[in-house]
Design a protein around this nucleic acid. Structure first.
Lengths: 198, 198
DNA sequence: CAACACACATACGCTTCGTATGTCAATTCA
DNA sequence: TGAATTGACATACGAAGCGTATGTGTGTTG
C-alpha cells in the first residue's frame, strides 16, 4: 500500500498537528507554546499550520473541538449506565469533575479556551457537556422529578460548580480526599433542584 | 506643597500603572495589552514597570489583588445588609454574579487571572469572595441551618456556579432576562444545602 | 558638600507571530 | 502521454513585544 490520496494526506497532517498542539498546549499553556516547536515535533513547519488552521487561535479551536467531542462521548457513556435520569445527572456531574482533573482538559478547555476563544457556549462545538446536561435536566423536569427551572441555567451552574471543584481538587495536596468533599457538596447542591426531598 | 517624599512618589507611580493596566487588561485582555502602550498612557515607560512589578505577570498580580479586595468589600457590605445569614449567603452569591458582569472583573479576575496566574485560591490575595462565602457557610452550619458539608467545598462550588452564570449572562443578547433565570437557578441549588426545606 | 542609592528612562537582543513568496508533487486535460 | 495548473507545504521576511543591561538625574546620607 502506502499510496495515499491527497485528502488523506491532508487529514493526516491535520491530525498530527492537532496531536502535537494538544501536548504543547496542555504542558506549557496556549500563550507559552511556540508554533515553531509545535510543528517541528509533528515533523512539519509553520507553513502547514497556517495553511490548515489560519492562525494560532484556529489551531486552539480545532484542539478544543476534538477534546470537547471526546468529553461529551465519555460523559454520555457514563450517564447512560446510571439507573435513572436523576442518577445519570449526578454521575455526569461527577464525571465532569473527574475529567477536569486531567491537565489536558483543565488547561486547554477550561482555562485557555474561555480566555482566548470567549464564552464556551458560543463555540462551534457548542460545548457538548453543557448540551447534554441540559437535555437531561429537561427530561427530569418533564418527569416532575426536578422543579421547573430554566434548564440552560441549571446546566450552566452545574458545569460551573464542577469546574471550580476540579480546579480546587487539582491544586490540592491530597486530591482523593478533596475530591470526595467536592462530590458530596455537588450532590447536596443538586438536591436543591428536586421537587421533593429524597 | 507639592513636595513629596520618595516613598509617596513611588506609591503614586504604582497606582498610576495599576490603573492603566486595569483599563488595558479589561479592554484588550492580558495577552493583547502592550506594556509600552500601558506605561505610556500612565506617563511612564516600561522601566518603571519592571522596577516596580518585576514582569508582566507581576503587574497582573497587583491588578488582581486590587480588584479582589474591592470585590470582597462590596460583597461584604451587601451580605451584612441582609436580615439573616442565610439571606446574606444568597445575596452575596447574587452580588457575585452581578459583579462578574463588569468587564473588568470578568476579563481580569475570572478569565485571564486563572489562566495566567493559576488556581485563584493560591493567590496572595486569597480570593476574598471565596473566604467570605466560606465563613458565612461555617456560621450557617454551626446554626444548624445548613447541612454539615465541607464549607470550603460549598464555597467553591457556589462561586463556580456564579461565575459561569455571569459568563452566560454577559454573552447573552438579553442580559436582564437571563440574569433573572440565573438567579432563580442559583437559589434553587443553594436550597439543596439547607437542613430543612423552606 | 561630596558620595552614594534609587527610581526611572533608554537601548539592545531575542523570540514569536503572521504574511509573502517559492517549490515540488499530484491532478487535469488536450 | 505530456504540458499546464492547482494546491499543500516550506522558506524568507518584516513587525512587534518582552525582558535585561546600561545610562541618568534627583533625593538622601554622612
Amino acid at each position: 500500500m502506502a499510496a495515499k490520496k491527497r485528502s488523506e494526506m491532508m487529514e493526516e497532517t491535520r491530525a498530527k498537528l492537532i496531536a502535537s498542539a494538544r501536548k504543547a498546549f496542555a504542558e506549557q499553556g496556549f500563550a507559552a507554546a511556540s508554533m515553531d516547536d509545535l510543528t517541528a515535533e509533528a515533523g512539519l513547519t509553520r507553513g502547514a499550520l497556517y495553511h490548515n488552521f489560519g492562525d494560532k487561535r484556529g489551531l486552539l479551536q480545532a484542539v478544543v473541538d476534538q477534546l470537547d467531542t471526546e468529553m461529551a462521548q465519555r460523559a454520555h457513556a457514563i450517564g447512560v449506565r446510571a439507573g435513572s435520569d436523576w442518577d445519570g445527572l449526578l454521575a455526569e456531574g461527577v464525571a465532569y469533575i473527574e475529567m477536569a482533573l486531567e491537565p489536558e482538559v483543565q488547561r486547554i478547555v477550561l482555562l485557555d479556551g474561555p480566555a482566548v476563544l470567549g464564552d464556551p457556549s458560543q463555540w462551534p462545538s457548542q460545548n457538548g457537556c453543557l448540551q447534554m446536561t441540559r437535555q437531561t435536566v429537561e427530561r427530569l423536569i418533564a418527569q416532575g422529578v426536578v422543579r421547573p427551572i430554566d434548564p440552560e441555567a441549571v446546566a450552566r451552574l452545574l458545569n460551573g460548580a464542577a469546574l471550580n471543584a476540579a480546579l480546587w481538587v487539582a491544586a490540592s495536596p491530597d486530591p482523593q480526599d478533596v475530591l470526595a468533599k467536592a462530590v458530596e457538596a455537588f450532590r447536596a447542591l443538586a438536591e436543591g433542584l428536586l421537587a421533593r426531598r429524597p
